[in-house]
């Protein structure tokens, strides 16, 4: 078990190091998210009256679109120099490779969310600073759910034609529990809703994360082989 954990650690370390040196994913994700926020202000009439109701949906759309961009690039680095073939030849657990990729995409999206959330509050005058820890918790739960399924399908569509289009087409319908779960919980939190209403959604999000991290861990082996 510790051996597998060490594999996850080093695989994740490799990706994070590359990201720190090159910064190509994070920068483009950040500017993409920022431009979405600007588009939202033109597309919708956001006032201080309705911002609390709209914020969860808008924020989650921004996170999900940026996350999909990141997923599309996730395996590119490993494919470019035949690094993927070398990794597969190495005595490595395929599940470890999956977990490392999930954690890497999760860290990218989490960093983006930590940037975007306060920025959203400032730009749209949303006074949610005291609720920020709760908002972040549910956003991260949803983000994990997005990544566990997303990484699997990024690998599945890797060798398909029109894969940049195919990935969101496959992913978004599967993401509906995550989208509804995060958007509703954030609406309850921001609308000062009752805490008991959060419980079923919390369970749903945790259940989604657990079911699909197990499924992805077991299934990625078939995707990478051959």
């Amino acid at each position: 078990m510790t051996g597998a954990l060490r594999q996850v650690y080093w695989l994740l370390w490799k990706d994070l190091l590359l990201e720190v040196r090159r910064r190509d994913n994070l920068l483009s994700m950040f500017f993409f998210g920022l431009s979405l926020l600007f588009l939202f202000s033109f597309a919708f009439e956001i006032t201080s009256d309705n911002v609390a109701g709209m914020a969860p949906g808008l924020l989650w759309l921004a996170f999900m679109f940026s996350g999909t961009l990141a997923l599309g690039q996730l395996f590119q680095g490993d494919r470019e120099n035949d690094c993927l073939d070398a990794l597969l030849l190495a005595p490595m657990d395929r599940g470890a490779y999956y977990l490392a990729k999930v954690l890497f995409n999760f860290s990218l999206m989490a960093l983006l969310e930590i940037f975007i959330l306060p920025l959203f509050g400032i730009l749209f005058r949303l006074d949610f600073w005291h609720l920020l820890p709760d908002v972040l918790l549910y956003t991260l739960l949803g983000t994990l759910g997005f990544c566990v399924v997303g990484v699997l399908f990024a690998a599945v569509t890797l060798r398909a034609r029109a894969r940049a289009l195919l990935l969101p087409v496959l992913l978004f319908p599967l993401m509906i529990p995550v989208i509804l779960g995060t958007v509703r919980t954030l609406q309850i939190i921001l609308g000062a809703g009752a805490a008991p209403d959060l419980v079923p959604w919390f369970r749903l999000l945790v259940g989604f994360d657990l079911i699909f991290i197990t499924a992805g861990f077991l299934l990625l082996e078939w995707v990478l082989d051959g």
């Binding site: 509906i176 509804l180 989604f208 699909f212 299934l219």
Partner: peptide, 18 residues
């Protein structure tokens, strides 16, 4: 096969959430 399995496992969760 992977989409078939993931999609089927997702149906109860989608059902609940919707």
């Amino acid at each position: 096969a992977i989409l078939g399995i993931i999609g089927f496992l997702d149906i109860p969760l989608i059902h609940m959430s919707v």
